[in-house]
Amino acid sequence: MKTCPNCGSKMEADVNFCTVCGTNIKDVPLDGAQPVEQPAPQVPVNPQPQPQVKAEPQQIQSQVQPSQQPQSTDSNTIQSEQAASQPQSSQPQSNQQPQQINDTFSKVSSQITTAVKNFDKESLWKWFVTSWKTPSAQQQGEKWYGIATLLVEMILFSFAGMSAIKKITYEKVSDQVATSDYSGVSQYIQNKITQLVHGLGFDLFLFVFISVIGLIAASYFINKFVHGKTVSVFDYINKIVQLSNISVFLVIAISLVLFMNPMNYKLAFFGLLTLVNWLFIFACAFCIKDGPETNRDYFYGVILYIIVMVVIVFIAWEIVKGQMVSQFQSILNVDISPYLDLMKMLGLQ
């Protein structure tokens, strides 16, 4: 065997030119033999094949193959990728859409499964306890803590509201038919009342949902307006919920009153409801103050937030009002729009 003095490649004894770099190795001694003292060959920086010496066809082929083999492999890979992509592009779009939906559903299911496996109830409980003891403390929690807490509170309040609406409606109808229980109400009227209660329960949830989402969005973007930049949306929601987390007990208390009968505890019901609303509003306003830097005065941000809050509540009420009027009209054939005029309810007309 010979060793190329230029690149160090091993060659057979009868090879005269290095098949890797093209260096003349005709006079290079075999490995293990005593080299003959001779001047070191001058190797050019960019070695070129010697024009006066004709290489054998096998040598030329061995020199060319190492450089051409990756190109052919790449071309084959590209052709195989193109061939694999052609059937997908030729498929109808109607067949691709169910596949995309299934893929999306699989990804969401995988994320939910991962979240359930990584659920740490001790960490969640610690987050709740810290928010009750020191609402403004800096603490880290999972992104879904705030959203999950709000959803549970809204769903609990909506179900309790449905129960209260059903009891009040049956009491009013029972007074009309001169009976003290629900047995005197016909099955037809009971079905109508049930249908109406379910619709009003959804309207109650819709009003709370639009109001909460609107207030959070207003606080978030006004915070960005004041400070120039802000944290992620999920961290911002966690901060708002952390400040107002005492409302968990208040919502539970309101739900108990609604399940029993709000007509017997009107003062407690409206007092707790007002306290929950203002606690959440103050939490959203307080979060506007926190930020990395200040471009504008925080006080003007709060004023802008109050204006936006009034607009959001008005829009949410008008949306739910239209739903309620439509439900009463279609189920009971009664127009209740005069009783839901917001200006008259606030005493402005």
Rank of each mutant, 00 (worst) to 15 (best):
M1L: 10
K2V: 07
K2R: 13
C4K: 06
N6E: 08
N6Y: 10
G8E: 07
S9Q: 14
K10D: 08
A13L: 09
D14S: 13
F17Q: 02
C18P: 09
C18M: 09
T19Q: 12
T23F: 13
N24M: 04
K26L: 10
L30I: 10
L30E: 12
A33Y: 09
P35E: 14
V36E: 13
Q38W: 00
Q42W: 01
P44G: 15
P49Y: 03
P49N: 10
Q50K: 12
P51A: 13
V53T: 13
A55H: 14
E56I: 00
Q59E: 11
Q59H: 11
I60H: 02
Q61K: 09
Q63N: 05
P66K: 08
S67F: 11
S67H: 13
Q69A: 15
Q69Y: 06
D74I: 14
D74E: 11
Q82L: 15
A83T: 11
S85F: 11
P87E: 01
Q88I: 14
Q91T: 09
S94D: 08
Q96C: 00
S106Y: 00
K107M: 03
V108Y: 08
I112Q: 04
T113E: 08
T113R: 09
T114C: 00
F119R: 09
V129W: 06
A137S: 15
A137P: 04
Q140F: 03
A148D: 00
T149V: 08
L150S: 07
L151A: 09
L151S: 02
F159Y: 13
G161V: 01
K167S: 06
K172M: 07
K172F: 06
K172I: 10
A178V: 10
S180M: 09
D181A: 06
D181F: 02
S183V: 04
G184H: 05
I189T: 14
I189M: 13
N191W: 01
K192R: 14
I193P: 02
T194F: 04
L196V: 03
H198I: 10
D203A: 15
L204M: 05
F207C: 08
G214P: 05
G214Y: 06
I216V: 15
A217P: 00
Y220A: 07
I222Y: 02
I222S: 05
V231K: 13
Y236S: 06
Y236F: 15
V241Y: 01
N245L: 15
V248W: 11
F249T: 09
V251E: 05
A253W: 04
A253Y: 09
L256A: 14
V257K: 00
V257N: 03
L258M: 12
M260G: 00
A268S: 09
A268G: 00
F270W: 13
F270G: 01
G271V: 01
L279D: 02
F280A: 06
C287V: 07
G291V: 08
G291P: 08
N295A: 01
N295V: 03
D297T: 10
D297Q: 12
D297W: 00
D297M: 03
I303D: 01
I306T: 11
V310W: 03
V311D: 01
I312D: 05
V313A: 07
I319M: 08
I319H: 01
V325P: 04
S326P: 00
Q327T: 12
Q329D: 15
S330M: 07
N333M: 05
S337R: 08
L340D: 05
D341N: 15
M345I: 14
L346F: 12
G347F: 04
L348C: 00
